[in-house]
Computed example of a mutant assay.
Amino acid sequence: MKKYLQIVDRHKASLGTRFVNNFIDTIILLIINFILSFISAVIYNVTFIHFFYFYNNGGFLWNVFMGSVFGFVYFFFWENFTDGRTPGKYITGTKVISTDGKKPTTRQIVSRSLYRLIPFEAFTFFGTDGWHDSMTDTRVINYKNYESERQLKDEINSIGVKETA
């Protein structure tokens, strides 16, 4: 069983902040998709390779599949390689951490990204935690408040400890 810190839950991001994170990241994903669609249309008009035509005209299931692939890659790379932050999380001052207070493992980030692919998973936040948080032992926290309390606790614990230069 993993260690679970109460400080993590005290600084969980609010539902409104999580909504803003998701909104910003969704807008960025839409912009990326628009750019890729434009590039594939240009490539198709130059090369007549049918894959690039299919990319823009593949139908509903193709769009769902490609949206899932891009969403997985987007969230995995941002959260794994930028210390648990996506552009939405940077803007709102939030961050993903493990419930034990450490940086999430790559396995946890992969799991978070896969859980997001479940249809209607976003509605699981109307409970206490969304599936991609609760099932992976991660939380999105207000980073500044969390760090302030953690630093304060470290300073209190260091009272009476002799400093060495």
Rank of each mutant, 00 (worst) to 15 (best):
I141D: 06
F48M: 10
R107G: 04
A13L: 02
I141P: 02
T86R: 10
T47N: 06
Y115D: 00
L15M: 14
F60L: 15
L36I: 07
T17P: 02
L114E: 04
S37I: 00
G93E: 12
Q6S: 14
N142T: 07
K3S: 06
S68M: 15
I32S: 02
D9L: 15
F126K: 10
A122R: 00
F81Q: 12
Y44Q: 01
T105L: 03
T17F: 02
L114A: 10
Q108H: 00
P104E: 02
S14H: 09
V42Q: 11
F65M: 12
I39V: 09
F23M: 11
R150V: 15
T86V: 12
I27K: 05
L5G: 00
I159H: 08
G88Y: 00
Y74N: 11
I91E: 08
N56K: 15
V64K: 10
T94I: 05
F52P: 05
E155S: 03
F65G: 14
R116Q: 12
G16E: 01
F52Q: 03
F125Q: 13
G93T: 04
F77H: 07
A122I: 15
E163P: 09
F34R: 11
R85H: 08
G127M: 13
V42E: 04
E79R: 07
P104M: 00
G59A: 11
E79M: 07
V140K: 08
K102M: 12
N157L: 08
N142R: 06
E147N: 10
Y143C: 01
G84D: 06
Y143N: 06
N56P: 14
N142D: 14
G160Q: 04
P119L: 07
Y90L: 15
N80E: 14
S134A: 15
S111T: 04
L114W: 10
I27R: 00
G59L: 09
I31N: 01
I35H: 05
R139C: 09
F70M: 15
I49E: 13
S158A: 13
K89V: 07
P87F: 01
N145L: 12
Q108S: 00
T47P: 05
K144M: 05
T136I: 03
L117S: 14
F52H: 02
H50N: 15
H50S: 11
F54Y: 15
Y44H: 08
K153Y: 01
I109Q: 01
M66S: 09
Y4F: 13
